[in-house]
Design a protein around this nucleic acid. Structure first.
Length: 942
DNA sequence: TTGTGGTGT
């Protein structure tokens, strides 16, 4: 780790001690192509602010350019900063150049990568990763620590490089004293030149041997009949073609009469395909040949085999790791099927995809170049020349195919303004930019106006993916910072688990003891606890042994620990308190969920999960949840390969997501209605997040949702309909008033006496304030208002009566009927067709015998008219005709019948005990007879 | 039933 640190560069620009350490004489020995143009380069550096140097591997540009800069007088007012895409390269280049300049690494020449700063005050040449230079922008906006900057391997076009090239272009005007050198493979250098106002380009020969390219297109005859051509190609046709190509290499070697065997490098697109090719080659390939897989995730020991020279011939089957990151020694032949997995972020599905694609011409050439380093080589391409020529010249730069949230956030912090106008070499797709902002908004790092928030600044200060940084910030208040830092550190380095192909089961068994049944994340916490406990107890040797036995990569464990340590320090700076007690599951996972809101999924049929935006996904088979499948999960990654996989997952409760989602949560309401028991208006709420329904039908108080509508429902269904438990005088009064009118309606067999509901609604609507929509708010208001106006809510008789009812009602429709000396209650009901329609005498069983039927025929005075009219209408036509106009006859007959009603003299009908009453039909018959119409008993209908 | 390769305040 760091021993010395430079003082603040900007403040000490005048007192830069590196210049004094620069050697007087530079050793130019060594036979490197770049030295042929050394003097021109020195002159160019002096004359131009920007110089582009294109050269292939072996040109010596990486080691000689810094020296050329020194010779051109650079490094005198600030360091020469020299960036590399990879840490390993930064270290290696630093030690090579330190040796050539006869200084020590960490003295005149230093390097700085994550976790290791080997620079000193006298350092005049600083190797670093491009990520480090970017990070330094935070403290040193004008890069005053440097008077020269070399961006190496610019053709790789990583996000870091593209950002740096854009930033440096803006910086050149502000720092006229700054020199910039850009090196690249000999591809597309004109683009770089144009980007920097026509900077001069030097093309330096690589020192490599000629490579003969042979095109051997894969025969797809066998695949033609297959339904899945891609499958056929990868599973059968390519392995077959590779076997043939290997044979061709061996034939070539025999024809050359070479004594030493040459190794063969086969490019492959994935671990799976490597296995497939390896199996095929072991079966059908040449005997006595070592087959070596090579890919980044391979354990260190297995990778190391590639660099240990064995005795026999070797065939190395490698992913793209061998195209840029690792140089496989002794390669005379390259076999290139022409495919690679390319990471592409889909702004539409918000998913990282890893499709297998045909590689670009640039990539194919880079692959071919891998066999021309020690001798003339042969590259066999398993595709046609026409295919090659039809391919894109260059691989899409990363900025065109990745999520841009981190870059956007960085630019916001640096105040670089509008990303759309930033001078990128290739402008990012605006849809990717929008999606980057969308993610930042989801994380709360920017607001709706896309301005960075306080939270965003905290996130930006952590050297983490924004999602992971968000988790860290959330963890402290939840008392789960310790666990979350352990997890986040693990997620930001390579998985420390080794899983050698031939010992998969053993590895899985060893790893199983650290598993948590519901969460892949807690694996890391469990493992961490065990490793932490060992620190005081076991020697390093014992701990290494433990790691080995448990299929854990010591190197990656160290990276994990160092990342964690760095994060712990930063959290202290951010004043995020560390928990001492272990955090419960919920706290840890709520914190994680803050960064993974758009990566939740809901269990569907079978093992399939429904992920956001209507996507089907599967839990990655290595997860503890792969078999179990709880209803709701979140995943650290959502990657599409053969399927969409949810990798590193944990069980969650949908309520956690609901609470965290804020404005992202969509709520819809249905069926708002009054609930008497709750005394309020409720509705069913449906919540959803990114199209996933978190809760389908939850009963909620509707008042805060839509107060106006809730109030209307409250007035209509509670106050007007009377469906409310109110012990209030006004309410009893109003109910009684309404009941009275309703009784009147029943008696008079009409439905137009009570005012309609709208009128009653209007009455309350006028009085009840806007903010009253429930029993409680209503009562609170009523108690206040009735102190001033006690009758404020009382309806008057006029207000409930639609028309004035006549005053004869009490006589015409008595409430009781006097029968056999008893006042018996009468019930009125107006509902034609109903059993109880009309008037009903409630007769105790004991009195049944005492009531003459004749009494009942007469009904009550108010109904007698209708009854008589009905009887007359029921007469045979011949009789009826003599009674027209019927209404007149009814009116005049009633005049006579009225006084004859039972009990009419006393004002009340009478039953047995008085004079026996005459039957209605008899009385009516008499009345009609007086009008000259004789009605027989059989003439009465029914 | 399984993922290309890097980088960091």
């Amino acid at each position: 780790m760091t021993t010395e640190r430079r003082p603040d560069a900007a403040a000490s620009a005048g007192a830069y001690p590196g210049a004094a350490a620069i050697p007087q004489d530079i050793d130019w020995s060594g036979d490197l192509p770049v030295l042929a143009v050394r003097d021109e380069l020195i002159a160019a550096v002096r004359a131009h602010q920007v110089v582009i140097v294109a050269g292939e591997t072996g040109s010596g540009k990486t080691t000689q350019l810094p020296k050329i800069c020194l010779a051109a007088g650079r490094g005198r007012t600030g360091m020469i900063g020299h960036t590399q895409p990879r840490r390993i390269a930064a270290r290696a280049v630093a030690s090579r150049i330190a040796e050539e300049l006869k200084t020590q690494v960490g003295a005149g020449v230093g390097f700085k990568v994550r976790f290791s700063d080997q620079t000193a005050t006298q350092t005049y040449l600083k190797l670093m990763t491009d990520g480090v230079l970017l990070a330094e922008l935070g403290q040193d906006r004008l890069l005053r620590a440097y008077d020269t900057i070399i961006i190496d391997e610019a053709h790789e076009r990583s996000l870091n490089i593209d950002f740096l090239l854009g930033y440096l272009r803006t910086l050149l005007a502000k720092r006229p004293d700054l020199k910039l050198l850009i090196t690249s493979a000999t591809i597309d250098v004109e683009r770089f030149s144009r980007h920097f106002a026509g900077a001069p380009v030097f093309v330096v020969e690589g020192r490599s041997y000629p490579v003969e390219t042979r095109y051997r297109p894969v025969s797809l005859e066998a695949a033609a009949s297959s339904e899945d051509e891609g499958f056929e190609l990868i599973e059968e046709a390519i392995p077959r073609a590779v076997v043939e190509a290997v044979e061709e290499c061996l034939q070539h070697e025999r024809a050359q009469g070479r004594s030493a065997r040459g190794d063969i490098l086969v490019f492959s697109s994935s671990e799976r395909e490597i296995r497939l090719l390896a199996d095929t080659l072991r079966k059908y390939g040449p005997p006595h040949t070592e087959i070596l897989p090579l890919y980044s995730r391979l354990s260190v020991a297995e990778q190391q085999k590639v660099f240990e020279r064995g005795s026999g011939r070797r065939i190395v089957i490698a992913t793209n790791v061998a195209e840029t990151s690792l140089t496989v020694p002794n390669i005379h032949y390259v076999i290139d099927p022409g495919f690679a997995r390319i990471s592409r972020y889909s702004y539409r599905s918000k998913v990282q995809r890893l499709p297998v694609e045909a590689v670009s011409q640039a990539s194919a050439n880079q692959r071919a170049g891998r066999c021309g380093r020690i001798a003339p080589g042969v590259c066999i391409r398993l595709y046609s020349e026409a295919d090659y020529l039809a391919r894109p010249e260059f691989t899409d730069p990363e900025i065109r195919r990745t999520n841009l949230a981190a870059v956007i956030l960085q630019m916001q912090v640096l105040g670089l303004g509008d990303l759309e106008r930033f001078p990128f070499l290739d402008a990012p797709d605006s849809r990717l930019v929008n999606d980057g902002f969308r993610l930042l908004e989801e994380l709360g790092a920017v607001d709706r106006q896309r301005r960075i928030t306080t939270l965003g600044r905290q996130i930006a200060r952590l050297p983490l993916d924004p999602r992971l940084a968000r988790m860290v910030v959330a963890a402290a208040p939840l008392g789960a910072l310790h666990e979350v830092l352990v997890i986040v550190a693990a997620l930001s380095v390579q998985d420390p688990r080794d899983r050698p192909h031939d010992k998969q089961q053993a590895a899985d068994e060893r790893h199983a003891q650290f598993r948590h049944p519901d969460s892949d994340f807690l694996f890391f916490v469990n493992l961490w606890d065990v490793l932490a406990a060992q620190k005081g107890e076991l020697t390093e040797r014992e701990r290494r042994e433990f790691a080995r036995k448990h299929f854990l990569s010591w190197l990656r464990l160290r990276e994990w620990r160092e990342t964690w340590r760095q994060l712990v320090q930063l959290c202290e700076g951010l004043k995020l308190p560390m928990n001492r007690e272990p955090a419960p599951y919920e706290a840890v996972h709520r914190a994680l969920l803050t960064g993974l809101l758009s990566q939740i999924a809901h269990k569907g049929d079978d093992r399939e999960y429904q992920a956001p935006r209507n996507q089907k996904a599967l839990v990655f088979p290595g997860s503890v949840l792969a078999r179990k499948g709880p209803p709701w999960i979140m995943a650290a990654e959502l990657v599409e390969t053969h399927r969409v996989y949810l990798r590193l997952a944990a069980k969650i409760e949908p309520e956690w997501a609901e609470k965290l989602a804020g404005d992202l949560l969509k709520r819809s309401y249905s069926e708002p209605h009054w609930e008497r028991r709750q005394g309020r208006v409720v509705a069913f709420e449906q919540t959803s997040l990114f199209g996933l329904v978190l809760h389908a039908r939850r009963k909620v108080n509707y008042e805060p949702v839509n107060r106006a509508e809730a109030r209307e429902i409250f007035i209509r269904d509670a106050l007007v309909a009377g469906d409310i438990d109110l012990k209030a005088a006004f309410f009893r009064h109003n109910r009684e008033l309404i009941a009275e009118v309703e009784r009147l309606e029943d008696k008079t067999r009409r439905r137009d006496l009570l005012v309609d509901e709208e009128t009653l609604y209007a009455f309350y609507d006028e009085r009840v304030p806007e903010d009253v929509a429930s029993l409680k708010t209503f009562e609170d208001w009523r108690h206040r208002v009735e102190k001033e106006q006690p009758g404020h809510l009382c309806l008057s008789r006029e207000q409930v009566l639609a028309k004035a009812a006549d005053d004869g009602t009490a006589h015409d429709f008595p409430d009781t009927l006097r029968v056999a000396g008893h006042d018996l209650p009468l019930r009125y009901h107006f509902e034609p067709g109903h059993e109880a329609d009309g008037v009903t005498l409630l007769l105790p069983a004991g009195l049944v015998q005492e009531v003459p039927e004749a009494v009942l025929e007469w009904l009550v005075p108010g109904l007698l008219g209708d009854r008589v009219e009905a009887l007359l209408r029921g007469l045979p036509k011949a009789l009826r005709r003599q009674l027209v106009p019927l209404p007149d006859t009814v009116a005049s007959v009633l005049q006579e019948l009225g006084p004859q009603m039972p009990g009419a003299q006393q004002g009340r009908p009478q039953g047995a005990g008085g004079k026996a009453p005459e039957s209605l039909l008899a009385a009516l018959g008499q009345a009609l007879l007086r009008r000259g119409v004789r009605v027989g008993a059989s003439d009465w209908a029914g």
